[in-house]
Structure formats: structure tokens, C-alpha cells
Amino acid sequence: MAAPFSWIKPEPHGIYIPPADCWVDPSRAVDNALVTHGHADHARGGHGQTVATPETLAIMELRYRTGAEDDAGEIPHKAVPIEYGETIRLKGGVDATYIPAGHVLGSAQILLEHAGERVIVTGDYKRRADPTCPPFEVTACDIFITEATFGLPVFEHPPIEEEMRKLLDRLAAHPDRCVLVGAYALGKAQRVIAELRAAGHHQPIYLHGAMEKMCRLYEEHGVDLGELRLVADAKKGDLRGAIVISPPSALNDRWSRRLPEPITAMASGWMRVRQRARQRNVELPLVISDHADWSELTRTIREVDAQENWITHGREDALLRWCQLHQRRAKALALVGYEDEDD
């Protein structure tokens, strides 16, 4: 009999499953990929076959045109959709089940089972309610492979209602200006819009051109975002007293000069640290993240209660230390290619 868990191998470019010849969230193109969610550092283009939720596949299609035909008129990429709760049998007797991760539209944890052993790869996740995707489900397993983007005890995300209140109060105090919110184009932007609607803000929200297609995709998947307009189509006067959403990279870009005295805001978990906000010239920091904060990470490790925890990208040293202090077996994986700059 093979050694326990010899069928799962953390490699620098992703988690490899030898019997299935398959990778989870590989950071380079492979023949067979299981993808947790559509963010670029987890979902790369160019794979031969991708297993993911229909929403994630739609996002990948939008970003990488994975459904495009080649010169021979064939579609070289094979997309294999899998719904939440569904199991797919891979080669070598490995089963993969997709479970909601609560991170963004379509995001999933992947439960891998082989020879009676259970391993979960979380991808990215959070434990807060999010109107744009179903919540994280705690699932029992032997090895829990968790992210650690905000794995430091200084990171505690406040309730999102407080941050929405801050944003709407600032907007109301400056009716002649606009509030420009930098938000990651996939997930964060749509969540902020949906939460603004929930907080009673029903005016049109203006978008940077780069956000439009992803917002439409969310709407097609049943997420109501209210009335959205493009900045490019608006007159300067329309934007006074309005909320504008752009990718973080456009905040200090020439693009924003067309806006009426914008108050620069950014929706990100990093905004908890003052100097991070200052480095990005942010005047109104909004501590909003689609990742688990320190309390959520540690609570999840406790609740899942796996024999062993493997910690991927982020502040792995601190989470590893916490596991050690709480007598939980853990190790850090040195994966390359994951980024956490803008979330």
C-alpha cells in the first residue's frame, strides 16, 4: 500500500495529484487543471482541460477567451463544468467535489478523495455573508490546505455595514464631488455595488470601462446590481455626488482626472493599515475584503479540525505559529505565483 497522502504533492507551481495527472490552481499552463475560482493568480489561461464551476468557467472564458477556436476550427480547450456539491471522478480513482468557498462568484473549495483519505484545497475564502455568492461550508477532511492572505492578528475586517456607512456619509458631506472607489474588478467591485444597494443607495453607480463586462457577467448569473453607467458616457455634472468604481490601478491614473474632485477611496483588507492606505494615496480607506481575516482563519482551522493544516500563500509564518501554539499540526507550502497586492 502506498504511503498516506502520497497521492497529493505540493509543488512550486501548484498542488499536483499524480494518480490523476492533474493540478489544482496551477500557476502555469498544464494539461489537466482543477480551478477553485476565476482570479488570475488561480485561474491561468492555456490549460488543456479545466474543471471548474460554470461561473468560474464563464469568467475564464471572458478573460482568456478559452472557448476560442484554433486555426483548424476546433476548440482546443476542454471546459468541464461542475456544480456545487457535485463530484467528478478523475483518473486513478481520485474524486473531486466542489464546495462553496464564499470568496467570489463561482468560487469553490475542492475536496479531493482517494483511498479513503480526504484533502481540501480552499483556494481563497471568507466566512462573511456576501450577496454575490453562496457562503463557505465547513467540511471535514484529513488535510486542510488553507490560504493565509490576511494571516496576521492585526487583520480584523469590520462589519461591511460600517464601511458602507463611512462611504455614504462621505458622499453626502460632499455633494459637489464624487467618491472614486478602487475595487478589484472581479468580485470586490460587484460585492461593493450589491452592498451599497442593500444599504439603500439606489442612484446610478458609474463604472470604469474595465469593470463593465464582469458586472454584466454577474448580472447574467442572477446578481442584481441596480443601475450601472459608464464614466465614459457621463457628463462631468452627472458625476457630482455619485459613486464611481474603478480598478485600483486607475485611482491615481490620468483617467481619474476627468472626474469632479474625486475623493479617493479603496476597498481592500489592506486598508486596515494606515501606511498601506497612504502608500496608495487613499483618502477614504474602506476595510472590505473577500478573504478571511485572522479570526476567520483561526476559527475555520478549529472548525474543520483536520489532522493536518497546510498553509499556502500570504502571511504563512504567523498562521503557522498560531497552529503551533494551539497544538495543531501545520506546515507552510512554498507556492509561487500567488499575489495579494490589490485585495
Binding site: L152, V154, V273, Q275, R315, A318
Partner: peptide
């Protein structure tokens, strides 16, 4: 250890 890691990240 958690203090030092946090202080190192925050820078203040």
C-alpha cells in the same frame, strides 16, 4: 512571535 511578525508587517 505574533507581535514581531505583525510589527514587521505594519512598520510602526
Amino acid at each position: 512571535v505574533l507581535w514581531t511578525l505583525s510589527r514587521d508587517f505594519v512598520g510602526d
